[in-house]
Amino acid sequence: MTGNTVLSWGAGDASQLGNGTVADSLGPVSVTSLALGEVDQLVSGGLDSNSAFVLARTGTTVKAWGDNVAGQIGNGGDADQSVPVTVPRLTNIKEVAAGGMHALALDTSGQVWAWGDNAYGQLGNNRTGDHRNVPDRVQGMPKVKQVAAGGDFSLALLENGQVYAWGRGMYGQLGNGSRATSPVPRQVTGLDKIVAIAAGVHHALVLTADNTVKSWGYNLHGQLGNSSTKSSNLPVDVDWIEGVNGIIAGAFHNYATTSDGEVWGWGNNQYGQLLEDENFADTAARTNRTAPVEIPLLKGAQSLAAGARHAAAIIGGKVFTWGHNDEGQLGNGTTTPAYVEVQLPATGYTKVAASLGGNTTYLY
């Protein structure tokens, strides 16, 4: 399957496939009116398959589709969108991020825009308990370099290497030593010289200038990677790995890539998301990992996506998926989970994405 459009598959009940329907798809379908090569970045949020929504950055503008119960499509309404629509008020955008039911965009001037659910102040507008269905600018931060969105909190990496967080703090995901909610951005404690950020549902990761990883927040599945399952409201060191050049946060599991092409994973492994050895069908081999384990089968991955209970990768130009498959999120025509890599017959694609808390996968 050599494509010329963006592809999606899996859960479609919230219009998140972008093909004009609300039906699930067990195999890849084309997203309406999005040509391959047009999309520079694609991210998908949602706390479950019924709240998934998608943002696609096309040049310097943003398109969105899917669930819109909290205005997370950003087009001024609350109706779901089954095909991509342009998000107004956003120009010169260089990055987008999708959270549980809210979204962020970063423009070329270093300003952050936010919209969608604001139950916990995740829009950073000094309000809680409401939502916004059009983007508004987040105030109170110097120039921002990168943004990330968790389930109900937000992160920003400043150009000076500091990190700010806002929104829900119940699990310590704001990283400031408190578990209180904050409707305005506050600095994460003790971090400087940070070069990248990532957010799961209730936890966060950062990549340091010395190529190590720190984390904070919820840790029931070991997703902080510090050999414990105790949550932390301050940043902690992720064990073992050095030479890291990339971090990918899923709902409750993570990956890190190194400069020599290695891939390491930790956190939830119920459905073999960590793909760490050949004994995937053995339940004992699918225990959660509280510290990073090397994943030889993913070495040299060009693109990695960590969803809620499944994952996807492009390795050597070939597309692979694995993990849970109850709504067809592996794209192989079945709903059977796969504890080994499933290769899809797609070529010509360079990037994969997966919904943060849902069961949908994208190829672009």
Rank of each mutant, 00 (worst) to 15 (best):
K94C: 01
V96F: 01
A97V: 11
A98R: 12
M101Y: 15
H102F: 14
A103C: 15
L104E: 01
A105L: 07
A105R: 12
D107H: 08
D107V: 12
S109W: 05
G110H: 09
Q111P: 00
V112H: 12
V112R: 09
W113F: 13
W115E: 08
W115H: 09
W115S: 04
G116Q: 15
G116M: 14
G116A: 15
A119Y: 12
A119P: 01
Y120S: 14
G121C: 13
Q122R: 14
Q122W: 10
Q122S: 13
L123G: 10
G124S: 02
G124M: 04
G124H: 02
R127G: 01
T128Y: 05
G129K: 07
R132E: 02
P135W: 09
G140D: 00
P142A: 08
V144D: 11
G151H: 06
L158K: 10
L158H: 01
L158Y: 00
E159R: 14
Q162R: 14
V163Q: 09
G167I: 06
Y171S: 11
Y171F: 09
G172F: 08
G172M: 09
G172A: 08
Q173D: 13
Q173F: 08
Q173P: 11
L174C: 05
G175C: 06
N176Q: 08
G177R: 05
S178I: 00
R179A: 01
A180E: 04
A180P: 00
T181P: 00
S182E: 13
V184I: 13
P185A: 12
L191K: 12
I194Q: 05
V195E: 04
A198W: 11
A198M: 13
G200R: 07
V201E: 09
H203A: 03
A204V: 00
L205I: 06
L205G: 02
L205K: 04
T208R: 10
A209T: 08
A209G: 11
